[in-house]
């Protein structure tokens, strides 16, 4: 309690706001933005000058070509298949990766360190990079997409789950140890029951991300609806492009709603 205050119950006076810090931060952000915009030749004036081109593109893109919709079904299903395979394969492989990266469960500092770095590498490289890599390795098509999403899924789930595993109560794992259980049994019977709900939740979240990502993967030849999008765009069929974008938007929204409601129920 501040001894200077005549009223012992009164809180101390509100500290003055640090104006130089605030002003400095704002000035810094403005300078950074201006510098970056200049760097890429971005200017509002230019945007207005090109507005006519943008307007023509919009006119050509409307109305969406609903007649094209039936031809979207197969590639769309392919996209979903890619997302499912990627989520399941990646989800299974993420289990050991996550467990060995959890400080409280890992098998030793060297394995922990190696696994952490492995995860960092997976996470640092974007999904499009993996798609291009696998498209080169196994050829263009959905298999490359599924492989890319498997890697992406390992990266997502292992990062999230290893952190939630680190916060489990270690009492039960210790009890399994005290019974003479092995490391694997400690993990299976002591740790995983506590982390299961989180795992399912993260796997569903990864599936949402994968559906969205598998739309884009087609752009680099990894199968699915993105491939159709790229072909139509290259042929200047903008009304079909609009149709595809609309369909994707609706599908992603529906899948996210379903997944989210399941995850909420799990929580």
């Amino acid at each position: 309690m501040a001894p200077t205050s005549p009223h012992p119950t009164r809180p101390p006076p509100k500290p003055a706001r640090n104006w130089p810090l605030w002003g400095g931060t704002i000035a810094f952000l403005v300078a950074m933005t201006w510098w970056s915009a200049h760097g890429i030749g971005f200017s509002l004036a230019e945007l207005f000058c090109n507005a006519a081109g943008g307007k023509r593109l919009l006119q050509e893109s409307w109305p969406p070509d609903f007649g094209f919709l039936p031809r979207l079904i197969d590639p769309f299903m392919e996209t979903i298949y890619i997302a499912i395979v990627g989520t399941v394969v990646g989800g299974i492989l993420a289990i050991p990766v996550a467990i060995l990266a959890a400080r409280n469960l890992t098998l030793g500092p060297i394995i922990w360190f190696a696994d952490r770095n492995f995860m960092n590498i997976l996470r640092t490289l974007p999904d499009l990079f993996w798609a291009m890599l696998f498209a080169t390795a196994v050829g263009f098509g959905p298999v490359a997409g599924a492989l890319a999403l498997s890697v992406f899924t390992i990266a997502v789930i292992s990062k999230l789950w290893s952190e939630s595993l680190e916060s489990i109560d270690m009492g039960m794992p210790e009890a399994v140890r005290a019974c003479g259980g092995t490391w694997l049994q400690m993990v299976q019977f002591g740790a995983i029951p506590q982390g299961l709900q989180h795992y399912v939740s993260y796997a569903l979240y990864a599936f949402e991300l994968n559906v969205r990502a598998s739309m884009v993967l087609g752009l680099v030849g990894a199968g699915g609806i993105g491939m159709i999008l790229e072909t139509q765009r290259a042929n200047f069929e903008y009304e079909r492009v609009t149709m595809i974008i609309l369909a994707v938007l609706v599908a992603v929204l529906i899948i996210e709603q379903i997944s989210e409601s399941i995850r909420k129920r799990l929580a």
């Binding site: 009492g171 210790e174 009890a175 003479g180």
Partner: peptide
């Protein structure tokens, strides 16, 4: 440990 049972204050059940 196989031959030694342990009982805990916080039960430690799944």
């Amino acid at each position: 440990r196989k031959r030694i049972g342990m009982i805990f204050q916080d039960f430690r059940l799944v």
